[in-house]
């Protein structure tokens, strides 16, 4: 074989150049087609919500819509708080607080499911961590929440105790701007 036969010719160059342009072109055209599926600007532009909770007395709940999901604001009774405080961390299926106001590894004590100074108030995204159903409040074996879809049971601090859900229900970022007003998000 002569050296000339190995030398790439014009067709080889065109073959490689066309192929590379094809691959890069296909990838860069594919991305807009995938990206358009993601939440759009109007969905992402979500202001935080401010809620007046002056009318919510102990034992009452208020549900507000935030990011298309229901957020429960519950003024818990002393009995509910005592029940939640009495649970040992070792009994919990998910020992992490899942509280966006605290470090991600905070233990799931009852106090860590709330914000400091407002321990009676449970503010929680009321969406089951299994497959996204809305659990029913003040039901189930632990007096907290019961998910009718697949039977997950949460306690009075919204922690998963039984059933297929893997995590405690999420606590969103929120703060009490006054004694009677909560800002979520």
């Amino acid at each position: 074989m002569s050296a000339e036969a190995i030398e790439p010719n014009r067709r080889d160059f065109l073959y490689i150049a066309t192929g590379m342009a094809g691959v890069v072109g296909a990838a860069s055209v594919a991305w807009p087609f995938i990206d358009q599926m993601q939440p759009d600007a109007s969905t992402l532009a979500l202001a935080s919500v401010e809620v007046d909770v002056s009318s919510v007395t102990p034992g009452m709940s208020l549900i507000v819509k935030w990011r298309g999901k229901p957020v429960v604001i519950r003024n818990r009774t002393p009995k509910e708080m005592q029940e939640a405080e009495a649970v040992k961390l070792s009994e919990l299926k998910d020992p992490v607080a899942r509280n966006a106001n605290l470090p991600s590894d905070a233990p799931a004590t009852d106090a860590n499911r709330t914000v400091k100074g407002q321990e009676a108030w449970l503010v929680m995204v009321q969406v089951c961590t299994h497959l996204g159903c809305i659990p029913l409040g003040q039901q189930g074996e632990f007096g907290g929440w019961f998910c009718p879809c697949h039977g997950s049971q949460y306690d009075t601090a919204g922690r998963i105790r039984k059933g297929p859900a893997p995590e405690n229900m999420a606590i969103p970022v929120y703060k009490f701007t006054s004694k009677t007003s909560v800002t979520i998000g």
């Binding site: 599926m37 939440p39 759009d40 969905t43 298309g68 996204g132």
Partner: peptide
């Protein structure tokens, strides 16, 4: 999941696609 439903919860974008 967000790519499939086009938001944080099932909604109008989900229905359209």
């Amino acid at each position: 999941q967000q790519l499939l439903i086009g938001g944080f919860a099932v909604g109008d974008p989900t229905l359209n696609r």
